[in-house]
């Protein structure tokens, strides 16, 4: 999946969305969502390969898979929230975008708290 094809799709999508923008704004927004989803689906296979390599390296370095799993979840949540928030901003719905980002931050915190607790306990064990 070279960058040329992605840029071609993005350009055609942008031009078509611009055509639709003045007659039917909602259709233009739906078209831009569709182009965004298409481009990300093309890239997702590459991300999957990178994630597999990371998982193998973590396995060799016998890091427990909990930490890597949580890290991947956080990356996934962050990406989806950013994707949706950007779409909401395109539709001039800044308030909804902020709410989506707030929810994503809360979820990331919920995922990160157990790890922070584990680190603190390890530190306390070292000190005492």
């Amino acid at each position: 999946m070279d960058i040329l094809q992605i840029s071609g799709i993005a350009l055609t999508g942008a031009v078509l969305a611009m055509i639709l923008k003045y007659q039917k704004p909602p259709l233009a927004m739906l078209l831009s969502i569709f182009v965004g989803v298409t481009i990300f689906l093309l890239v997702l296979t590459k991300i999957g390969a990178i994630v597999d390599v990371l998982r193998q390296l973590a396995g060799q370095a016998n890091i427990s898979s909990i930490y890597l799993g949580t890290l991947l979840k956080i990356i996934g949540i962050a990406y989806i929230a950013d994707f949706i928030a950007q779409i909401c901003r395109d539709a001039d719905q800044g308030a909804i975008a902020m709410k989506v980002e707030l929810a994503a931050k809360v979820m990331v915190l919920v995922l990160a708290v157990p790890i922070v607790v584990a680190v603190l306990q390890a530190l306390l064990r070292l000190i005492s």
Partner: peptide, 30 residues
């Protein structure tokens, strides 16, 4: 006519979002 057009396109986009979320769920183990 406008509403039917928007409805048809919305169904297509939602199907695509469904596949996107399934793929992200499988890649990021979400």
């Amino acid at each position: 006519v406008t509403l039917t057009g928007i409805a048809v396109v919305l169904v297509m986009v939602i199907q695509m979002l469904g596949t996107l979320f399934d793929e992200v769920k499988s890649v990021f183990k979400l």
